[in-house]
Each structure stands twice: as structure tokens, then as C-alpha cells.
């Protein structure tokens, strides 16, 4: 910078200086807009295709050989059973593991090994969980191709994510509050129960719901453990055979008749609506629970 030789008006921005900035901005905007447009196009296409079939009949109907009257109820019910059972299994186990790792485990080789494994497991392709579930839950334990076996498999798939989200949430609780609780004569468990858990609950729930939103779209592990593709009944117990939304959609897309493709599109719209609903609930819960907590 040779200030001495440059007159004042030279401070003005030059076109050439602006160029890289502008270019980067343009790339950034493109990177946001393009995927959004693509998504919108996909979803819009599905919505247009699905329009003639979307309605109460479709939601409450059973599958059929005739595409016009085929509905999605068993798949919807199957997915609901799966989500409920999966959360029942994954939340206590995941939160328990997170509590152990954050609050009780002494740092050391074993803990480091466990942490490494959880990180790795979060990235394992879901079909491998399907194969594991097929061997352990369906065959060895003998749950058969039941909704319980499906939920156990999905719970395994979600566990690493639930553990990681719960640990993050536990870490946000300041140490000073734990000390305050100890100093009042609370033991570790009472401190967790009364002070730490209520504070980190929004974080834990958000993590759980977001991973559930992912699980609801999982197809591969369910097909692997043998969820049925044609189900004309609703699951009535955890031992019931079942189908799920993505499987029903997959089944319809593989039919040759064009009318079934319309059903598939309608199924996709229902699935996306459910995922959006779950995400919405997560956001709402977090906002609501966080309002109760002030730091």
C-alpha cells in the first residue's frame, strides 16, 4: 500500500476487485437454489401425479389388485407401529448409553473405543443393519418377520444417532448446576434425574425425532428382514407381519401398470408429509421446552 502516491479518490472500489466476491456469492446462491429447485420439481411432480388418488379413501384403503381402490392404511399403520416401537427401544437405550458415557464412564481406552465405534456405526449403510437384524432378531431370537423384529432393527440403526444427540444435549448442562445439586446433598442419580435430564430433554427429544424422521423412510433394512409387500390387514400385536410406507411405495413403483405409479406418487406425498410433520414437531418441541429454560 503506497498511500503517499495514491490520491484519495483511488479508495473507490474497482470492478476487478469486486469480481471474485461476486463470483463466490453467485456460486453460493446457485448451490442453495439448485437443490431446492430440484427438490421442488420432484415433490411437485409427485404431487401432480398423485393428485387424482390423494384423499381419505387412499389413506384408509387396503391394498388391492385394482389400482383405483388400493389404499395405504396397512403401510401407514405398519409405519406407525414401527416408529412407536422403535422409539420405545431406542430412546431408553440411547439415553442410557449417553448418560453412562457422559456422566459415569471414566475416560480411558475402553471409553475411547466405545466412542470410536459409535461414531463409525452412525455411518454404516442401513442394509447391513438389515442383515444383522435378519440374523439376530428374525432367526436367532426367533421373532420372525414381525413388526417387533423390524422395530429392533431400526432401533439399532438409530442408536448411534440417538446416543450422539443425547450426549451433545447432556454436555450443554453447565457443570455449576451439577455442583449445586451435589452441594445440596443429592447423589449422582438424583442430580441426573432432577437437574440434568429436565434441562437436556429438549435436545434429546429433538435428536430422537430427527432420527425417527430418517428411519421412517428406511426401506433396505426392512426388506432385508422380510417385511411383506402385500398386506391386507393391520398389525394387531408386536408379533404381526407388517409392511411400511417405503415398502408399499417400492412395491407399487415396480408394477407395470401406470395406475399403480399414481398410487406410488400418492404414497410418496404421504411419506414426505409425515417426515415434514415429524420435523415440525421437533422444532416446535424444542422451541416450547427451551422457553421454560433460561440460562
Amino acid at each position: 500500500m503506497s498511500l503517499r502516491t495514491s490520491p484519495v479518490h483511488d479508495l473507490a472500489m474497482r470492478r476487478a476487485e469486486l469480481a471474485p466476491e461476486r463470483a463466490f456469492q453467485a456460486v453460493g446462491i446457485l448451490a442453495i437454489v439448485l437443490p431446492l429447485l430440484l427438490l421442488l420439481w420432484l415433490f411437485g411432480g409427485a404431487l401432480v401425479d398423485a393428485w387424482p388418488r390423494l384423499g381419505w379413501d387412499f389413506l384408509t384403503g387396503f391394498p388391492s389388485r385394482k389400482a383405483e381402490i388400493a389404499g395405504i392404511l396397512p403401510a401407514l399403520a405398519g409405519s406407525a407401529w414401527l416408529m412407536a416401537l422403535t422409539s420405545l427401544i431406542a430412546i431408553p437405550l440411547g439415553l442410557g448409553a449417553a448418560l453412562y458415557l457422559e456422566e459415569y464412564a471414566r475416560p480411558g481406552r475402553l471409553t475411547a473405543l466405545i466412542e470410536l465405534n459409535i461414531g463409525t456405526l452412525a455411518g454404516v449403510p442401513s442394509i447391513l443393519y438389515g442383515l444383522l437384524g435378519l440374523e439376530i432378531f428374525v432367526r436367532v431370537i426367533g421373532m420372525g418377520r414381525s413388526v417387533l423384529a423390524g422395530a429392533c432393527t431400526l432401533a439399532l440403526l438409530l442408536l448411534p444417532m440417538v446416543i450422539i444427540a443425547s450426549r451433545e444435549a447432556l454436555r450443554t448442562v453447565p457443570h455449576s448446576l451439577r455442583e449445586a445439586s451435589f452441594a445440596l446433598g443429592a447423589d449422582r442419580w438424583q442430580t441426573l434425574q432432577r437437574v440434568v435430564l429436565p434441562m437436556c430433554l429438549p435436545g434429546v427429544l429433538t435428536g430422537v425425532i430427527l432420527s425417527l424422521a430418517r428411519a421412517i423412510g428406511e426401506t433396505a433394512p426392512l426388506i432385508t428382514i422380510g417385511a411383506l409387500t402385500y398386506v391386507a390387514f393391520l398389525p394387531d400385536s408386536v408379533h404381526s407381519a407388517f409392511t411400511a410406507l417405503p415398502i408399499q411405495i417400492f412395491n407399487w413403483t415396480s408394477r407395470p401398470q401406470a395406475a399403480f405409479h399414481v398410487n406410488a406418487a400418492a404414497g410418496i406425498v404421504v411419506l414426505i408429509a409425515l417426515m415434514l410433520l415429524l420435523n415440525g414437531v421437533a422444532i416446535w418441541l424444542r422451541a416450547r421446552l427451551q422457553r421454560r429454560v433460561y440460562w
Partner: peptide, 20 residues
């Protein structure tokens, strides 16, 4: 130690009421 702490109270440097 839990019983000791109930008979010997403590106030910390930074106020730390339970936020929930």
C-alpha cells in the same frame, strides 16, 4: 458424603439457581 453435604451447606461464586 451426601449426608455431610446436607448438614454443611454451600454457596458458590456464581449464582447457580436451577433454570428448570
Amino acid at each position: 458424603p451426601v449426608r455431610v453435604r446436607r448438614r454443611v451447606g454451600m454457596v458458590f461464586q456464581k449464582p447457580n439457581p436451577f433454570p428448570t
